[in-house]
């Protein structure tokens, strides 16, 4: 669409849509950059051996299952 068709009020229409684009793009970029920062932070914590309580519990349960002998597993 040719913006000259907007006549004497073109700058107002362009300003409104430009600001909408800036606000939406800004929100998306902010949320995405926040996500990547948090992911890096969590990876750094996990790398240093710190685990979430639920993941530690899951790991313990997994180890218990693995350490159970075949006889115990079969119930004999």
């Amino acid at each position: 669409m040719d913006f000259s068709e907007f006549g004497r009020h073109a700058e107002y229409v362009v300003a409104a849509y430009s600001m909408a684009a800036v606000v939406v793009a800004g929100l998306i970029l902010w949320i995405r950059s926040d996500k990547s920062r948090l992911e890096k932070e969590m990876q750094a914590l996990e790398a240093s051996g710190i685990r979430r309580r639920s993941s530690r519990r899951a790991a313990t349960e997994k180890n218990q299952v693995n350490s159970t002998s075949p006889d115990e597993k079969s119930g004999t």
């Binding site: 998306i28 949320i31 996500k35 948090l38 914590l45 979430r52």
Partner: peptide
């Protein structure tokens, strides 16, 4: 945007909990 932002906030709280445990 709300779902994306909620996902970040859950991650932020998990990091806080991990730091507190540490």
């Amino acid at each position: 945007l709300h779902l994306m932002s909620m996902r970040n906030e859950i991650m932020r709280r998990r990091i806080r909990a991990m730091r507190m445990r540490a």
